[in-house]
Design a protein around this nucleic acid. Structure first.
Lengths: 165, 165
DNA sequence: CTTAATGCAAAACGTTTGCATCGGT
DNA sequence: ACCGATGCAAACGTTTTGCATTAAG
């Protein structure tokens, strides 16, 4: 507990804006889970913290291993069940990659799309408002009624460009 | 064999342009497989025909079941191995959907993107040239070096809109 | 106290691998 | 005749399910 509080203060000093945004999102996730009749168990909270504090995409196994630091008797099954719940609430999304589709990340608000680093897994979000026009065009050309759009870019992030290739 | 030839003639009468385009693509696939040192085994050809004659996305299991009509002693493993080969040659691509990422489809030439029907699985391709500008914008904003883009739309096709909702 | 959530074990699922055999070239 | 491709069975990694137990409300 002391370690946790210390870490918390450290974050406040080092990354004030990041921390406050993260704390706000965490509070929102907790509220939404409660409102939808889900219990705030310690396992669930460990998974939530893991997802909210990572800037990379995470597999169920990644989350399992990381969240075990906080909550040592966590089962992998609970990670899967929590991910399912969070996905239903629209708080996390599955990330699709060439190597496989086993990763998850917290969703960004406001119709944002993913940009992934192929080397380190870092995820950045961007607005893709220009897509709306393209969708209307395709709707007219094909006569489909379009419900979902899905745009994802991948490449190499600035940090990975500097270190190595 | 007689049944095959009859079927072929039937297609020529009913769908002349579709058939000739399909025959051309089939010939190209065969050529490319040969050039890359792959043998045109009957199992492989059954899988190829299955992919080329479907306007829907197909799972390995789907292909296995359908291709067995032509080639009854086909193994599921060969379907997977053929899909892997065709993917390496850039002839098929994996399709990513909310329900899972286990489907494949023949790629369309010229940087086209997928539009999927959520109800019947029908796949239509469209050009998304407008994406280039968006990608350059995101590259400048984020300093990523973008290698791949990936756009997919889904909705309900005209046929499914008519037959019930 | 109620009952949702859990961990465990086992099953299910899609996919890959090892290996002896088959079949295209 | 060569050697790539095959089918089978078995292994694999990921995800789901059944069930008795735990713990949040």
């Amino acid at each position: 507990l002391v370690a946790f509080l210390t870490k918390k203060r450290y974050n406040i000093r080092m990354l004030p804006s990041d921390h406050s945004e993260r704390a706000m999102r965490r509070a929102y996730w907790h509220l939404l889970l409660r409102e939808q009749g889900h219990r705030l168990t310690s396992g669930r909270l460990a998974v939530v913290d893991c997802l909210l504090s990572s800037e990379r995409v995470l597999t169920a196994q990644d989350i399992f291993e990381q969240a075990r630091h906080d909550h040592s008797d966590l089962g992998l099954v609970s990670v899967y069940r929590t991910l399912e719940t969070l996905e239903e609430l629209g708080l996390v999304e599955r990330v699709h990659q060439a190597q496989g589709c086993h990763a998850y990340i917290a969703v960004a608000g406001g119709h944002r799309h993913l940009l992934l680093c192929e080397q380190c897994g870092r995820a950045t979000h961007f607005a893709g408002d220009e897509l709306e026009a393209l969708m209307r065009l395709v709707e007219n050309q094909t006569q489909y009624r379009i419900h979902q759009h899905w745009l994802q870019l991948s490449g190499v992030c600035p940090q990975c460009q500097r270190s190595g290739t």
